[in-house]
């Protein structure tokens, strides 16, 4: 688990529980309405395993996360363990300020999607800190839509900090939407500017190591994070700090300490517990079914039918 335990607080928890129960109740009511007033196929097991079960599970996860967010908004709090890469933000900005060199922030190859929005959220945090020290942060994008959003967000960050005049139009750059054209361009930028710190957050593929090695060649402090698991080893080998797995989505909560974001993390952890429970249930059912097949062949069919129905919930969902 990425985020450890919650210290429960009574205040507000009752109301949040009621709200979470309302969300769950809504699902039950919707399903019941479908059952009684929907077309005939609503009352077939095949329809439920294909079209209802998957949606119900995602809904349940959403309700659990929202429930915890509501709880946190009413005063609940959560403990987030230390994430070394993110504690280094002060250090990287400080170093760049001392050396008088810029920081580069690469948003990866993603288009406007959750991964990139999370990367941009982290970038904004770094930029806000850099504005205070008067340090340049050059943001590079590989998607023109992301560029448009990043440009606007950075402009707003400067305005909110009361320094709109310090905003340099050239500091948010669209380089190319082709993978290696972007990589070579970003690499050239890192080498030419001899950056003091290099951030890489977002959706990365093969270009990850190219960027990280370029940063390494100029001796930059490097912090990287991506949910693309295959690129993690490259970042680990060449960066000073790497954000691994779901730490990536915990980053904004960690940096801002906003209760809403911490609540969301706790909700995610509860969902993981549910998944763990479902896996355990599946394992027990499959084991019992296999055991019964050997011990008493008569019972085998009933149990294996149950096991296959359980399996269908996860394999046939459309």
């Amino acid at each position: 688990m990425t985020q450890a335990s919650t210290s429960t607080r009574k205040r507000g928890s009752d109301l949040a529980t009621v709200e979470a129960l309302c969300l769950a109740g809504l699902l039950v009511v919707a399903m019941a309405l479908g059952w009684f007033f929907g077309a005939g196929y609503w009352r077939t097991a095949e329809y439920w395993s294909k079209f209802v079960a998957g949606r119900a599970i995602v809904y349940a996860f959403s309700a659990m996360i929202l429930g915890q967010i509501l709880f946190a908004r009413r005063g609940g709090s959560a403990f987030i363990r230390r994430i070394p890469g993110l504690t280094a933000v002060d250090q990287t900005v400080g170093r760049a300020t001392e050396m008088g060199r810029p920081i580069t922030f690469s948003l990866g190859l993603g288009n406007v999607e959750i991964i990139t929005l999370q990367a941009l959220a982290i970038a904004l945090h770094v930029i806000r800190m850099a504005i205070r020290f008067g340090t340049r942060v050059i943001v590079t994008c590989a998607d023109p839509t992301v560029y448009a959003i990043a440009d606007e967000a950075v402009r707003e960050a400067f305005t909110a900090a009361g320094r709109p005049e310090s905003h340099n139009l050239d500091d948010v750059r669209f380089l190319s939407d082709r993978q290696f054209a972007y990589a070579s361009s970003a690499m050239g930028l890192i080498l030419r500017e001899r950056v003091a710190s290099n951030y890489m957050f977002g959706r990365f593929f093969a270009e990850s190591l190219i960027l990280a090695e370029a940063g390494n060649q100029v001796g930059a402090i490097q912090v990287a994070g991506t949910p693309i698991i295959t690129q993690i080893p490259f970042f680990v080998a060449s960066c000073d700090y790497t954000i691994i797995g779901d730490e990536y989505y915990a980053a904004t909560a960690y940096l801002t300490r906003e209760p809403v974001l911490s609540g969301s993390l706790v909700g995610q952890d509860h969902c993981k517990m549910l998944i763990l429970g479902l896996i355990t249930l599946g394992v027990i059912m499959a084991t019992v079914s296999a055991g019964l097949a050997q011990a008493s062949p008569g019972l085998e069919n009933d149990v294996s039918a149950l096991v296959s129905s359980f399996e269908k919930l996860f394999t046939e969902a459309k």
Binding site: V58, D246, Y249, T256, V260
Partner: peptide, 29 residues
């Protein structure tokens, strides 16, 4: 890791949709 990432993405998507991403997009920390 896949489970964690999927749930993280779901949480982030919900926060963006409901404008709850405080401290980053919707409110100065």
């Amino acid at each position: 890791i896949g489970f964690g990432l999927g749930l993280g993405a779901l949480g982030m998507a919900l926060r963006i949709w409901l404008s709850l991403e405080r401290g980053t997009y919707f409110e100065e920390t």
